[in-house]
Nucleic acid binder design. Structure first.
Lengths: 246, 246
DNA sequence: CGGAAACTTGATAAGGCTCAATGAGTGTGG
DNA sequence: CCACACTCATTGAGCCTTATCAAGTTTCCG
């Protein structure tokens, strides 16, 4: 399934050290985790897990992007989570995947076999605590998305997604976007459509409209310029605020 | 805010003793919780919390139903959670409500002031464990709902909701429904609409269609008869299975 | 350069929304 | 006890947003 097993870098050098489940670990806890961890790499487009099939590992995303999807046999697909570095895959106490998990870019995971991980968990209050915190954050995100899926117009959905991507683009080092308001889209139109509960045609048309209205500029297919972030936020339908959390 | 403070019954007699956050508590943990708990009662329709306002209590629902909603100023409202007995309100480590919480029936809560609860939490592994489990279950439920909101037709949404209500009606004592396939709807058409991301007119029309198609029978406004549960499930758009989870 | 994948654009149709009127159930007060 | 008001629900007519179907176009990449 995995393309290759990478060498094992030290946790102290890990790019997600301060955000993943292990964020608040003491050195000895980190040691214990380190002893049972292993890395896996996936190519863009590869399947990581399939709903209903056994999944005996849990993992943190170290690098890359993955999606969590739910679908119906007739092809309708809904993206239920966008997984970025530091996000956690799998659930302690469950041996079957609840969602389809797919790599959308090249992906590196820091994996643990489920059983040993669960056993270690008993003695690692900091991991449990962080896991709870992350689950609650994801729950909040899922519920915000429910508002979008249930009540927002196509234009508001697109704007919300772009705003979200912008906010996440800023995060990594706290610095502002590479260029003034230039954002790289990490996902295809189809993935956007599946995230937003729309068709790719509607996504495309709404992007065009936002461009014609001067809210955004398109530079090639995957790069977007946002001259006025406030103007974009005004299109999201949100009671602003949510502005800059974190 | 609360109508009245009820007497304090013993935890051992509590109807949600085996499902709430305290489900796996040892007697001494239960004692500790018991010492800081207090009950509150709300009338149907009363507001329990407002998004963005301070919320310094957490609570378990003992009796009744409440809703979690997110909305936009222009009135659009999305229900993001349906809270039933044993469900938990509030989040450790957060002092502001993230959602509007409203009682839809008369409601009894088992409350704790947030700070003391958080402190007790440090020494109660069983509560933390259960809290994580419940959060992950809610996350799964929210994600299933995202599929419904993003991709299902009105008819499928209504059917899914009815199926969900039926499943929950069975749960309490493990016994089958009161009468052969007779289910009481705990919510109004408006609440259903806000849950399903539809208007009340569409909810009403689809219920009528399901009735004309013989999938359900309506008995007054709030009671539904389901002669063939399998037939209802076939209308939900789900790959069946999900059959009887809980 | 050729081919495939990703994206855009157009024409048309349909599902669900909006607006509006009507009906059923419930509680209140004369 | 009936009339009235009020809430909740149903039904209808017309419209609008988004989906569907069908070409084109651009980009990527061997």
């Amino acid at each position: 399934m995995a393309i290759a097993s990478a060498a094992l870098p030290e946790c102290s050098d890990c790019p997600i050290r301060h955000r993943a489940v292990c964020a608040r670990c003491e050195p000895e806890e980190l040691d214990a985790l380190s002893r049972i961890k292993f890395y896996k790499t996936y190519a863009a487009g590869q399947t990581i897990a399939i709903r209903g099939e056994p999944l005996e590992t849990v993992a943190s995303i170290v690098k890359g992007t993955a999606t969590l999807t739910r679908s119906i046999e007739d092809g309708r697909t809904q993206l239920v989570g966008l997984l970025l570095p530091s996000d956690f895959i799998g659930r302690p106490g469950r041996s079957e995947a609840q969602y389809d998990v797919t790599a959308v870019t090249e992906l590196t995971l820091c994996c643990f076999h489920r059983r040993p991980f669960e056993e270690l968990l008993e003695d690692m209050p900091h991991v449990r605590e962080r896991l709870l915190e992350m689950a609650l954050d994801e729950l909040d995100a899922a519920r915000d998305w429910m508002l979008l899926l249930g009540r927002k117009t196509a234009r508001e959905r697109i704007s919300s997604l772009l705003a979200l991507i912008v906010k996440r683009s800023i995060r990594p080092d706290g610095g502002i976007l590479g260029d003034k308001g230039r954002v790289e889209l990490p996902i295809t139109r189809e993935t956007m459509a599946n995230y937003l509960g729309l068709t790719i045609e509607t996504v495309s048309r709404q992007l065009t409209k936002l461009r014609k209205d001067g809210i955004i500029q398109l530079e090639g297919k995957r790069t977007i310029l946002i001259p006025d972030f406030g103007a974009l936020l005004a299109e999201t339908g949100d009671d602003d605020d949510g502005g800059m959390i974190f």
